[in-house]
Design a protein around this nucleic acid. Sequence first.
DNA 1: ACGAGCATGTAACCGGTTACATGATTGG
DNA 2: CCAATCATGTAACCGGTTACATGCTCGT
Lengths: 182, 182
Amino acid sequence: MSLPHAILTALLEKPSSGLELTRRFDKSIGYFWSATHQQIYRELGKLEAEGHIRALPAEQPTRGQKKSYEVLPAGRAELARWTASSQDPKPYRDTMLLRLRASAVVGTEGIEADLRRHLALHQQQLAEYQDIEERDFPPGAASPQGRLQHLVLRAGIDLETFWTQWLTHALAEFTELPGENR
Amino acid sequence: MSLPHAILTALLEKPSSGLELTRRFDKSIGYFWSATHQQIYRELGKLEAEGHIRALPAEQPTRGQKKSYEVLPAGRAELARWTASSQDPKPYRDTMLLRLRASAVVGTEGIEADLRRHLALHQQQLAEYQDIEERDFPPGAASPQGRLQHLVLRAGIDLETFWTQWLTHALAEFTELPGENR
DNA sequence: ACGAGCATGTAACCGGTTACATGATTGG
DNA sequence: CCAATCATGTAACCGGTTACATGCTCGT
């Protein structure tokens, strides 16, 4: 039950249509909660039916017409409730770690190339986050909202830093493995 | 398509019944790929139908009777293929980061307690991993299989270390926020 | 007027989750 | 023998994914 709350957050920051939300999910919020436009439309319908949001009274909503939504007080209250609620961290899932473990059994043939590819991807993502940090969070005092947003970005930066270091370490290990295991 | 391969890996390490697999998923493999017994039974049925595993020829398999499986050559080949295949990293999803972002909009009322709770949980998990490392991976030379397994465990340790540090940092930020934002 | 792209939406599927059912074994 | 537990399994649901359909708008 996270997608509706992600949408409520995005709509509170700025009322938007479905496509606009999809684009914004490709950027900031999507960095740690991605969603496709189908998910977003489905969820917008539910949120409207529940009285959490409403379509902005512009034109009649026919197909192909832009339809913007804004958050109603009930929606804001629900988001506040959810934000403050106690939630267990989801168990972590990662296929690369799974494949590395499998490679200990069936051989490491072929996995090294994908480790390198992942390293490049994480380095790229790290650079993107660092650009955002430089641009949006220059050193110095910031508003409380800004500090919270910076905190979230730091998590992204530190996670990508971890992955680049770990993958580098993993690749170094591989060069030391005896030939028949590679 | 990861669960069947996780099961193949576990079965290659040691032929097991459904319940035994469930227990082992609660431990080692489950640390980065959890599964319930219902998922595992469902998947065992599929894997058997595909000819990747077979039931060990013991007693006739009636309900309530233990039924152990072993991996067939086709299953091992499929696992090797999957392990060496190129796979994109899944976009990262985390509700705590989402909630923190939401709290920048609707207020941080109530979230601090859950940050503390998460910190305790991650510290606990970190301690568990470190115990395993001390017990199973003492300093010194190790087999290639051991080194790969150690690599995976290091990822778990480093991830939990990251979370404890980040949560500590986040809580420190909170104490500096002006009163109306807490 | 028409094709490209914009915007919204339907449908089918798939893996993970939760609740529950049923047969076998074992301890009191 | 009966309850508790072990072991396997069925069913319904839910969110995320993929493929496709349809209507509108705008540039040429």
